[in-house]
């Protein structure tokens, strides 16, 4: 089902079919998007379900002002950022650092299949400020245009380019490239 088909179902009020289309089209890609923020498969699985519950509840209010993909990614990105904020708070309350907790999750992740360089890149990403991390993930991994990222995050294209540049520089420094 294409995005146009889903939008047509939504306009017709056929929310169940539209929702199934969203599940088929986006669930896998959306899982990988939130996985880069949760750093663990179990948390990503929970978060994807939360995101889809939010999508289902908000479907009747989708007016089609923005692209459906952008709307879905906005919900998912906000949920992922809330998750990171809570994780940082948990780390602070346990007198630990979020970076140390991220290192622990990455090192003990049974579903991590990368080499040492990729492990180091994952750790470096977790150390980026959350805004730079978001822009970098959306641009580098999801391969979205700056205009699409701007629609998702509500940030200007110029500011996004600056954030991406700073993120790339910090990653190079961390990876000693």
């Amino acid at each position: 089902m294409t995005e146009k088909d889903i939008q047509a179902k939504l306009k017709a009020g056929d929310y169940n079919l539209a929702f199934n289309g969203i599940v088929d089209n986006y669930s896998e890609r959306l899982y990988w998007h939130v996985r880069r923020f949760t750093l663990s498969h179990e948390d990503a699985d929970d978060l994807v379900q939360d995101v889809y519950i939010k999508i289902w509840n908000a479907l009747p209010s989708f007016r089609g002002d923005s692209e459906l993909f952008t709307w879905i990614w906005r919900i998912a990105t906000n949920a992922a950022l809330n998750y990171v904020a809570k994780a940082k708070l948990r780390s602070a309350l346990s007198l630990s650092s979020y970076a140390a907790e991220a290192d622990r999750l990455i090192d003990n992740d049974p579903w991590f299949d990368g080499d040492e360089a990729e492990r180091k890149l994952s750790k470096a990403l977790a150390r980026l400020p959350v805004k730079q991390r978001t822009v970098f993930c959306l641009r580098y991994y999801d391969e979205l245009s700056y205009e699409e990222i701007s629609d998702i995050t509500g940030t200007s294209v110029g500011a996004l380019k600056a954030s991406y540049h700073f993120a790339a520089e910090k990653l190079k420094d961390y990876l000693e490239l």
Partner: peptide
């Protein structure tokens, strides 16, 4: 660099469709 359990995405889609 990440993987998922076998047949995870088909299972995920089934669970999501029941929402």
């Amino acid at each position: 660099p990440h993987t998922t359990p076998e047949a995870y995405f088909s299972d995920l889609k089934t669970r999501l469709r029941s929402i």
